[in-house]
C-alpha cells in the first residue's frame, strides 16, 4: 500500500528518521515499537502525509504522492493520536460531529459500534466531564467516522482499563472482518503488540532496525527458545538430562525448584527434543517457549 523508500527526515540538524525502508501491506496489522524519541511519531506523521521526507520517497502503487494525492488518500485515513485533548466545552456528540465534518465522515458510519464505546447519555455530556478512558473511547470513535481503509493508532490503549482495551481490539477485529482495513499500531505495550499484529517494525535512533513477522524477527536475531523441564527425582536434579542438553548445544542450563531451564538454538530444536525424549522416565513435563517481542526489542536495543 504505502512504500517507504530510504526515507530520511531531518528537523534542523536532528535526524528523526534515518533511511527507513519498508512497505505496508494492504489489510495487515502492522506494529511499530521503539522507545521514546526513536522516530515512531515522525514515521507516523509521514504515513499520514502531514510532513514530507527530507530525502527518499513515500510511494503508493509505485508512484510518489503529490499534495492532491495525499489529500485524496487522507479521505481514507483514520487517525487516533496519543494524548489528544478534545475540547472540554463540546459534548461528545458535538465533538464527533465536528470531526465528521472535517474528515468528510458521519456519525451514522459508526452507529453500530458507538453505543459499545460511549452510551448516548455520556455522548450528550461535555467532554470536560469525561474520564481518561472515556476520552480515549471518543478518540477511537472519531478515528472511525470516515469508514477508513487505513487506520493509524498511536498508543491506542493508553488510559484504557482492561475492559476498554479488549473492547478496542474487539471493535477493530469486527471492522476488519467486515472490510479490508490496514492498521498501524504504535505502542509501548509489547505484549499487546505481539498478540495483535501480523508484522512488526522496531525503531531505534530514527532507523527501522528490524521489520517482519514475529517469527522472522526471532529467526533473524537468532534468539534461542526457552526450554523448561519439570524433573521427577529432585535429589538427582535432572543431572542426566542436563548432561544431554549440554552435549546437544543448549546454553545457560540451570536447575532450581525441581525445574531445569535451558536455552535452545532454534536450528537444534528437533534434535534436542528427540534427545530429551530419550530421558522421558526422568521428567514429568516440559514447556518450550518462543522468544517474546520483548526479547526481540531488548535484543535490538
Amino acid at each position: 500500500m504505502l512504500n517507504f523508500v530510504r526515507v530520511t527526515k531531518y528537523y534542523n540538524d536532528i535526524k528523526a528518521a534515518d533511511e527507513v525502508s519498508f512497505e505496508l501491506v494492504e489489510g495487515e496489522m502492522f506494529g511499530l515499537v521503539g522507545p521514546n524519541g526513536s522516530g515512531k511519531s515522525t514515521l507516523l506523521r509521514m504515513m499520514l502525509g502531514i510532513i514530507k521526507p527530507t530525502e527518499g520517497q513515500v510511494l503508493m502503487g509505485g508512484s510518489a504522492l503529490k499534495d492532491n494525492d495525499w489529500r485524496e488518500f487522507r479521505r481514507l485515513i483514520g487517525y487516533m493520536p496519543e494524548r489528544v485533548s478534545f475540547y472540554d466545552n463540546l459534548s461528545g456528540k458535538a465533538t464527533l460531529e465536528l470531526f465528521a465534518n472535517i474528515k468528510g465522515g458521519s456519525i451514522g458510519n459508526i452507529e453500530d459500534i458507538l453505543p459499545q464505546l460511549l452510551p448516548w447519555e455520556v455522548l450528550a455530556r461535555k467532554v470536560g466531564t469525561y474520564s481518561k478512558g472515556m476520552r480515549q473511547r471518543l478518540n477511537l470513535a472519531q478515528s472511525l467516522l470516515n469508514n477508513p481503509g487505513f487506520l493509524v493508532l498511536d498508543e491506542p490503549t493508553s488510559g484504557l482499563d482492561p475492559i476498554g482495551t479488549r473492547l478496542l481490539y474487539d471493535i477493530l477485529d469486527g471492522v476488519r472482518e467486515r472490510r479490508k482495513l490496514t492498521v498501524v499500531l504504535s505502542s509501548h505495550m509489547l505484549a499487546e503488540v505481539e498478540e495483535k499484529v501480523n508484522r512488526v517494525g522496531i525503531m531505534k535512533d530514527g532507523a527501522l532496525k528490524a521489520v517482519g513477522t514475529l517469527d522472522e524477527l526471532y529467526r533473524g536475531l537468532n534468539l534461542p527458545l526457552r526450554l523448561i523441564i519439570m524433573v521427577k527425582n529432585h535429589s538427582l536434579q535432572g543431572a542426566e538430562i542436563r548432561e544431554t542438553l549440554k552435549k546437544e548445544g543448549a546454553l545457560n542450563i540451570t536447575y532450581a525448584g525441581g525445574q531445569i531451564t535451558a536455552e535452545l538454538p532454534v536450528a537444534n530444536k528437533l534434535k534436542m527434543l528427540a534427545a530429551i525424549l530419550g530421558h522421558k522416565e526422568d521428567f514429568v513435563d516440559f514447556t518450550l517457549r518462543q522468544p517474546s517481542l520483548e526479547e526481540v526489542f531488548f535484543g535490538i536495543h
Binding site: 506523521r45 499520514l48 502531514i50 487522507r74 478534545f86 470531526f99 474528515k103 472519531q142 493509524v152
Partner: peptide, 12 residues
C-alpha cells in the same frame, strides 16, 4: 498542545 492539530492535518 491539545494534539488536535495533527488530527486536523491528517484529515482531507
Amino acid at each position: 498542545d491539545r494534539h488536535t492539530l495533527d488530527l486536523y492535518l491528517s484529515a482531507p
